[in-house]
Nucleic acid binder design. Structure first.
Length: 943
DNA sequence: GCCGTCACG
DNA sequence: GACGTACGTGACGGCG
């Protein structure tokens, strides 16, 4: 949604010829609904919802900025009934009423249109689309260019020479190519396709059994709808033929419904739709009423008014560099002043500036502090002299660098503040700043206590949007932060933050601390109001210092093992490549799916279909395995090549480069807010996807080793997600099986297929296992069939049998879907909310996707909550037991420790106990949680 | 920068 | 009745 507010690169339609008039027709009604669903909820101070108004205003500003229109109009639907209801009463009849918080925005958007001095057009009895069609026709007849601002597919029939469309949400032009992509036919045939395919949303009936794909194919073959209907008898498929003959009249009515009327007696003559200039007073009055600060600031500065005049009336003033007046602190006295103020009030927001996004490699360059909205400072610590802009060839340093407090003095003072238990330190992504500051080279500061606005946002609005500071500033304050690239440049000419001139560094750094402060003001109280305090305080906040320690610990990786493997892989890749080229009869890039597809399917003529989007052949492992099973040696060789190439590039080669030169260990970074379900994710490098499933890949794990005298201890939950399913859905026999320690998949197979445990075969057990997994993912007949390689009908029968045997599962699934639809989110057993955006999609495929996510999220998320609880308790438990064990890694259901040899057994027992008890006392599960421990010299032998 | 592919739970 | 499918991630090479 950040895109709608302002996007620098806009794929605007081509401009008009010199001297040619250009008319913009904005589909106001269409835009309202799209903006409403695309943008998160947003209210002005008096509580009136304004997210669609905000999106609309930004869109208009952009249009006026970027486009060369001399004529324009914004067009609305006057009411929900039009002449089409006389033709077909059910047309658009089953449309639900507009959402409650959208209704008050309709009049506001018309008001916005008038405030921007744009003509606002609507007519009883006609839809906006008809008025647009009429103006477009009139304009083209006069030789004008027309751009329709909408992404509504119903308007695509109008695209032709002189008329194009522009999608204001995605910022892309829609021309004949895009129409062809959507409907499979040229714009002038779109109505024929729509007439056949119908539209369930608008209640256009169409012909039963025919969708867009089939319709396009038919129109392509027969030329147009009438010809097709006349010659319907020639159609080969019996069902389709019958339907076309029987429902020919329905198709003709549908065509009438979808055909836009382009001769409406429009209320304003075309010539009156001229673009009039902006009236600043008018527009500012409107924007102030909505409290759109960024837009206000913009029009104020355009009008030459004194900035800040309205700041007093705004709830939170907009901190642009000029008006916020951030301080640069370059004396120790100055710093002491800020620290004293922070200690006096007990809360301070801060941010660190460094040389790297990788906290284990970052050198501290400066720190910013904020004490109140707009009141912030920057303390440069390691800035160096820099060439003035444009003097790239000048010496980079003019001697001793800019004036700043000596590093050790400043750090000593800041350490007092950051370690002061009476002062709450607020940061955005505090894990990063804490880790940077904790390293001896950066002061060795143990920051506490801390609050993290990123985690707070995640807990409140996880799944709705990202949680970066820039995104949240825009979302909550309509404020656009200075971009890092604006300060440091990008690409080759990018400079380090230490080289940024102090005034620019101050504006950038202080702004981040300032916005963090403001976010904290907004989000903290919401945690209480929205009952998310427990999740934040027990699952996220205490995890931060735990993860800081884990990331700093890192894990030892033996580069020699990886280098040897890499050399071996390189040799084998060359061999495979040669064999593949011989088999293909020509050299080509084996790593290119495109070239491989052409060899396999064009040159060799093997069976295999094109893929929808890009038109490229699919050459995934499943396809190649199919070919290999048919005895195609080439496919087998490519699979082998792919496996080796993956292992080499992603693991053996890359991991060596990730060894930190200082610690000689590999330090991953965990993202606490990346996964919507509550899971962590690991990156730079990702240590949560180190190979294990194949023999070859597993060898990578031999390179992950313990320090001499230590062992790696791995403890992982056994079947935690399935146990949670059994508990949540009340599956009594499954619960009993878990309690008695029976093989759960065999037990399931026995229940579902009626085979006694004594007669169980591995094949039947395999099927049951796949179903058990499928349940967790929101099963579908198609998905299970693909997994098992059985026909879809058979897979569906398995599912039916499963539901029959375990009715609680179906109830659970229905309940989660219902909640997701009603509330927009589902919850884990610990109360974590997982918002499901896709649930509001009108595209059924996307909505189904949302429903499956809603089924999976409480299961995956509850498991994530449980291991987080264990991770918070473990350092305390280990400490209490005087253990020297260090927690190194988390892989969703596994924890990896480095333990002195002699302590392994005791530590394993302790870890197992904490993990198995992690759901209690909040949750009293009806199934036991079981964790299995293993240890060895390397991760390969520990597992 | 997007897409296809593939590594993990 | 059609959509196009198992859930959640991150990283790589190819390609335009």
């Amino acid at each position: 949604m950040a895109d709608t507010a302002a996007t620098p690169d806009t794929d605007i339609p081509p401009p008009a010829e010199p001297g040619q008039s250009h008319l913009f027709l904005v589909d106001g009604s269409g835009y309202i609904f799209r903006a409403y669903h695309a943008l998160p909820p947003m209210t002005r101070p008096d509580g009136v919802p304004v997210n669609a108004v905000f999106g609309f205003s930004n869109m208009l500003v952009k249009l006026i900025d970027d486009m060369d229109a001399d004529h324009m109009a914004v067009i609305f639907d006057a009411s929900r009934f039009s002449f089409r209801n006389d033709i077909y009463p059910q047309y658009k009849a089953q449309r639900p009423d507009a959402p409650e918080d959208l209704v008050p925005q309709f009049p506001l958007i018309r008001e916005a249109t008038r405030a921007f001095n744009a003509p606002c057009i609507e007519m009883d009895g006609f839809e906006a689309d008809d008025i647009i069609a009429t103006y477009a026709r009139q304009a083209v007849e006069k030789g004008w260019r027309v751009t329709i601002v909408s992404s509504d597919k119903d308007l695509m029939q109008l695209v032709r020479d002189g008329i194009d469309m522009f999608d204001p949400m995605k910022n892309v032009a829609i021309g004949p190519d895009q129409v062809m992509e959507k409907f499979g036919v040229a714009p002038n045939k779109v109505i024929d396709v729509q007439a056949l395919a119908g539209d369930s949303v608008d209640n256009v009936p169409g012909v039963p059994g025919i969708g867009i794909k089939t319709a396009a194919q038919l129109i392509d073959e027969y030329g147009d709808l009438e010809t097709l209907l006349e010659r319907a008898g020639e159609i080969k498929q019996p069902k389709r033929r019958e339907n076309l003959i029987e429902h020919a009249e329905l198709a003709r009515i549908s065509k009438q419904l979808v055909t836009l009327k382009d001769d409406v007696d429009v209320p304003e003559p075309l010539g009156d739709l001229v673009v009039r200039g902006i009236d600043s007073d008018k527009i500012l009055a409107f924007l102030r009423e909505q409290n759109f600060k960024r837009l206000i600031a913009r029009f104020e500065s355009e009008a030459g008014q004194a900035a800040g005049e309205t700041a007093a009336t705004a709830a939170v003033s907009a901190p642009t560099g000029e008006e916020a007046d951030y301080a640069l602190v370059t004396t120790l006295e100055g710093l002491h002043g800020w620290i004293a103020a922070a200690e006096a009030q007990g809360t301070v927001a801060f941010d660190t500036e460094t040389t790297s996004l990788n906290a284990m490699r970052a050198e501290l360059v400066g720190v910013s502090l904020a004490l109140a909205p707009g009141k912030a400072c920057y303390i440069p610590l390691r800035h160096v002299g820099t060439a003035a802009q444009g003097e790239l060839l000048a010496a980079p340093s003019s001697g001793d660098g800019p004036e700043q407090i000596p590093f050790d003095d400043a750090i000593a003072a800041l350490k007092g503040l950051f370690e002061n238990p009476a002062v709450l330190k607020v940061a955005h992504n505090a894990k990063y700043d804490c880790l940077v500051l904790s390293r001896p080279a950066n002061g060795g500061i143990a920051v506490a206590p801390i609050d993290d606005t990123m985690c707070a946002s995640y807990v409140l609005e996880g799944g709705l949007h990202g949680h970066g500071l820039d995104e949240l500033s825009l979302l909550h304050f309509e404020h656009r932060n200075i971009k890092f690239e604006e300060v440091c440049g990008k690409g080759k000419s990018q400079i380090g933050f230490a080289e940024v001139p102090l005034d620019k560094a101050r504006d950038y750094a202080a702004e981040d601390a300032d916005m963090t402060w403001r976010l904290h003001q907004v989000l903290r109280p919401r945690l209480v109001e929205e009952h998310m305090t427990t999740v934040y305080e027990t699952l996220e906040r205490p995890l931060i210092p735990v993860l800081v320690d884990m990331e700093r610990n890192g894990i030892r990786v033996d580069p020699k093992i990886l280098n040897d493997m890499s050399a071996d892989f390189a040799k084998r890749m060359v061999e495979r490549e040669g064999e593949i080229h011989d088999l293909a009869g020509e050299p080509f890039n084996v790593a290119s799916p495109k070239q491989l597809g052409e060899i396999l399917f064009d040159k060799m003529g093997l069976a295999g279909g094109k893929k929808g989007k890009t038109g490229a052949y699919g050459t995934g492992a499943d396809v190649l395995e199919g070919l290999a099973a048919q005895g195609i040696e080439l496919a087998e060789k490519v699979l082998d090549y792919r496996q080796i190439a993956k292992l080499k590039s992603t693991y053996t080669d890359a991991l060596v480069d990730d060894i930190n030169p200082e610690t000689r260990r590999v330090h991953t970074s965990y993202s606490m807010t990346g996964a919507a379900t509550g899971r962590l994710s690991s990156n730079d490098p990702n240590l949560q996807n180190i190979p294990i499933r194949t023999e070859e890949g597993r060898k990578i794990r031999t390179a992950f080793v313990a320090e001499p005298g230590n062992l790696l201890l791995s403890v992982d939950y056994s079947q935690i997600e399935l146990r949670l399913v059994a508990d949540i859905a009340g599956l009594e026999t499954m619960r009993a099986a878990f309690r008695e320690g029976i093989d759960i998949h065999a037990q399931t197979a026995s229940e579902v297929f009626g085979v006694p445990l004594g007669e169980m075969t591995s094949e039947i057990r395999r099927k049951a296992k796949a179903i058990n997994f499928g349940i967790i993912y929101g099963i579908s007949g198609f998905g299970l069939a693909r997994q098992l390689g059985t026909p879809q009908g058979e897979a569906q029968q398995y599912i039916n049998a499963y539901f029959e045997r375990f009715p609680g599962i179906r109830d659970y699934m229905d309940e989660m879907k219902k909640r997701a639809h009603e509330w927009g989110f589902v919850e884990t057993r610990f109360g974590r909310k997982v918002h499901i955006n896709a649930i509001r999609e009108k595209n059924p495929a996307m909505r189904n996707f949302g429903e499956r996510a809603a089924i999976n999220a409480p299961i995956q998320g509850t498991a994530a909550d449980i291991i987080k609880r264990a991770m918070v308790r473990l350092p305390v438990a280990l400490e209490k037991a005087n253990s020297k064990a260090r927690m190194l890694l988390q892989v969703h259901d596994e924890l990896l420790f480095e333990v002195p040899e002699g302590d392994v057994e005791a530590t394993a027992a302790l870890v197992k106990e904490v993990m198995e008890g992690a759901a209690a006392p909040v949750l009293n599960l009806s199934v036991p949680l079981v964790a299995d421990a293993g240890w060895g010299e390397s991760w390969a032998t520990a597992h």
